[in-house]
């Protein structure tokens, strides 16, 4: 087991390296160069030269690359061009609010998705199966900003149950009320994934011999599902939540824009609008590292909970 985990960790290193190189190349692909993009068309030659020197763009490309790798490895991602804070500071500032939203969304997705997926598998090809498949496909089809806007129009503007803008009051109840819609938006999309994976995984498990044996021994349907089928059926669901992480980040960007909520998504959007390429590059590096870490952890967790996974 430990050697499996180590191998998986070692495999992550070249991947990280390639991703960082890709980001380096992508950022250098900016038409013109970064200095003229940052300063705009009106910049004088002298200020362009100063900006290039500040960004290290006057160095040969291989030197730039080595500096880039050194900076990433030492956690120095530069300073935001608009706020002057370091990229790491900017991220830490909004991280709690993003984590709150993410945890709430994951809870909603699992609590709603699991039972629906199990019911769909038990009643295969019945109306409940088609309805749950349709519901989950609708969930998968919603771009997060579309579902967000519809939720906003219906529940905040029309019915007035929730605030239209995220309040920054310290009252915990008020905060919870403004968290509800964004969390529901992300949670319902996650639910769609969970329903699908639970359904197909439960269908696989329900066809196994040991389930037939248990049924022949007279186990009640409730006990059959809860004790016998669910344990094995849940394994893929754990990994889908891990794999959904990337999508969750993308969707949280849109959700935070719609509900005007501070967070990583809002940070990216702000960086984009103010052409803050240092912040954008830094965020891209942080996301790449997060995705690689979560991927690796998901793989290792899969090995931990499923004794059948072979450690080659």
């Amino acid at each position: 087991m430990i050697s499996f985990a180590c191998k998986r960790l070692l495999l992550a290193i070249p991947t990280l390296f390639v991703m960082l190189t890709a980001i380096f190349v992508l950022v250098r692909l900016v038409p013109g160069d970064a200095a003229s993009v940052i300063l705009g068309d009106q910049a004088t030659e002298a200020s362009l030269r100063a900006m290039r020197a500040r960004l290290g763009l006057d160095q040969p490309i291989q030197v730039q690359y080595l500096h880039f790798l050194r900076d990433v490895l030492t956690g120095n991602l530069g300073r935001s061009l608009s706020s002057g804070r370091t990229v790491v500071q900017e991220v830490l500032l909004v991280l709690p609010s993003t984590i709150q939203l993410t945890l709430a969304a994951i809870t909603i997705g699992i609590v709603l998705g699991l039972p629906l997926g199990i019911l769909a598998a038990l009643g295969r090809n019945s109306w409940i199966d088609y309805v749950s498949r349709l519901v989950s496909l609708v969930g998968l089809s919603f771009p997060a900003f579309v579902s967000g806007i519809l939720l906003l129009i219906i529940f905040a503007i029309h019915l007035g149950w929730f605030p239209v803008l995220t309040s920054d009051s310290t009252d915990p109840l008020e905060r919870l009320r403004s968290l509800a819609l964004p969390a529901l938006n992300l949670g319902l999309i996650l639910m769609a994934y969970v329903v699908r994976v639970t359904r197909s995984s439960m269908l696989g498990v329900l066809g196994e011999d040991y389930i037939r044996t248990a049924r022949a021994k007279g186990v009640t349907p409730m006990r059959l599902v809860m004790r016998h089928a669910l344990r094995n059926g849940l394994i893929p669901v754990v990994t889908v939540v891990g794999l959904y992480f990337g999508t969750l980040i993308g969707n949280s960007v849109l959700t935070e824009i719609i509900f005007n909520r501070p967070g990583l998504g809002k940070l990216i959007f702000g960086a984009l609008n103010s052409r803050d390429y240092t912040l954008l590059e830094g965020l891209m590096i942080i996301f790449a590292i997060c995705v690689i870490v979560v991927n690796t952890l998901t793989d290792i967790t899969y090995g931990l909970i499923d004794p059948r996974v072979k450690y080659k």
Binding site: G246, L248, V291, N295
Partner: peptide
Amino acid sequence: DVMLSFPALL
């Protein structure tokens, strides 16, 4: 693998 799990939108 990383590209797959990297958010398409981002």
